[in-house]
């Protein structure tokens, strides 16, 4: 990845984080922590890696993105708004009655490819899409973002088995390994493994697996490029991330997993993101 591209992606990640704060609004709970930790991966996917066209959201050869950790959809909402799938102003109406942007993603929203929110189902949805693409002889790929604590769901490993069995080299999973679930530190409460352990699990299931700095757009992009060259197996890119990344008071804590913002915290967050 060249320097100019990397710089553009860093700016887009700031835009996404700004959009997350817009979507959170004031006085309503929202998932800041997991949306911020995944923001750089979302930026690399939408502005570097994926073949998508906001003017033609359903074009048949588009790559598909599935936010399996559906509560972290705010960053995806921001990217879709920035790309023009719907107006940026829509973000402030997130989670309002009659609004376009639901608390968890639904396919009625332009650019959203799958309903998620019940954790552990997104990777299976991706397997189904990849089987369909192969059946059609199509070259499009599927990118699934999961959490680390989400890997406690057994269905993830059913899907991992299926993806390896069918040698789905058109499937990528990006694990947002921020180490913190809704209730606290993963390592302390219910240890699904750190980034290296998670990568080892995927490797043991027959996947190509790589650990990256999940906030380094160049490392993420390079790993995604490398995955394109892997044939006969799916790829897992495990991003070591910081929950709440970019907003100091929300970093490395579960306190902002799902919390409302005040005028003060909102202003501080926006200043830090764009400072």
């Amino acid at each position: 990845m060249d320097k100019a591209t990397a710089e553009k992606l860093r700016q887009k990640a700031k835009r996404i984080r700004t959009g997350i704060i817009e979507a959170l609004g004031l006085g309503k709970p929202g998932h800041l922590g997991g949306s911020m930790s995944a923001a750089d991966m979302v930026a690399v996917l939408y502005y570097y890696k994926m073949n998508v066209d906001p003017k033609n959201p359903k074009k048949p050869d588009r790559d598909r993105f599935i936010m399996s950790k559906g509560h972290s959809v705010l960053g995806q909402y921001a990217a879709l708004a920035d790309l023009g799938y719907y107006p940026w102003e829509e973000l402030s109406r997130t989670k309002t009655l009659g609004g376009l942007l639901q608390g968890h993603p639904e396919i009625s929203t332009p650019g959203i490819e799958a309903n998620t929110g019940s954790l552990g189902q997104g990777l299976s949805l991706g397997v189904g899409m990849c089987l369909a693409a192969r059946r059609d002889g199509a070259a499009w790929r599927v990118f699934v973002v999961t959490g680390d604590a989400e890997l406690g769901e057994g269905q993830i490993w059913e899907a991992a088995t299926a993806a390896a069995n069918y040698k789905l080299d058109n499937l990528r999973v990006l694990v947002d390994a921020n180490g913190i679930s809704a209730m606290g530190r993963v390592a302390d409460r219910y240890n699904v493994g750190d980034a290296d352990g998670i990568a080892a699990k995927f490797a043991a299931f027959g996947w190509n697996a790589k650990v990256v700095d999940g906030h380094d757009v160049e490392e993420i992009g390079d790993a995604l490029d490398a995955a394109d060259r892997v044939k006969g197996k799916p790829s897992a890119i495990v991003g070591r991330t910081v929950k709440g990344k970019g907003v100091s008071f929300a970093e490395n804590t579960h306190a902002y997993h799902n919390k409302d913002m005040s005028e003060e915290t909102r202003a501080k967050a926006l200043a830090e993101i764009n400072g």
Partner: peptide, 24 residues
Amino acid sequence: YEMGIGEQNMISVAAGLALAGKIP
């Protein structure tokens, strides 16, 4: 498609196939 002994995955895989235009 043999989906092995994993009914939950099978149903979500079917949903993915349907999202991509198939009738599973």
